[in-house]
């Protein structure tokens, strides 16, 4: 896609592009001992400044950038999901709007406006 995205288009109209977006990260019960104990943690993800030649700004919010924001706010929680190289742990699955990000673009998977990021562990073992 080329041309101005929605936020840039809004910018043309004089309104400043939103500098950040809130994204809800839903975590399993096993991770509620970290941070505040609630099932959903909302993080604020800075949006990338947009220019007319880059994809729609909604795409600027990705799974990876949501997890980066989680790392800034709740590092112990984020460390459960990714190792220190930033790799998603093998038995951790992250779903965006119902789809496993591994089946999409991994951590580059866009998080659409309003979509939740849902963390679910694999079931396995004995």
């Amino acid at each position: 896609m080329t041309g101005p995205g929605p936020v840039a288009a809004q910018g043309v109209g004089g309104a400043a592009p939103s500098p950040a977006r809130s994204v809800a990260v839903v975590r399993p019960a096993a991770l509620r001992d970290v941070a505040d104990g609630r099932s959903t943690v909302t993080v604020t993800v800075p949006t990338v400044p947009t220019v007319p030649t880059v994809p729609a700004p909604a795409a600027a919010v990705t799974v990876g950038r949501v997890l980066d924001a989680l790392a800034a706010a709740h590092p112990r929680l984020e460390r459960r999901l990714r190792d220190e190289r930033g790799t998603l742990r093998r038995h951790v699955n992250v779903f965006v709007a119902g789809d496993d990000c591994r089946a999409l673009l991994g951590q580059d998977t866009p998080v659409p406006d309003g979509a939740e990021v849902v963390v679910l562990p694999n079931i396995a073992g004995g």
Binding site: A30, R79, D83, H91, P121
Partner: peptide, 8 residues
């Protein structure tokens, strides 16, 4: 070490 959530 958790099989899911890593070591610490």
């Amino acid at each position: 070490r958790s099989e899911h959530w890593g070591p610490g």
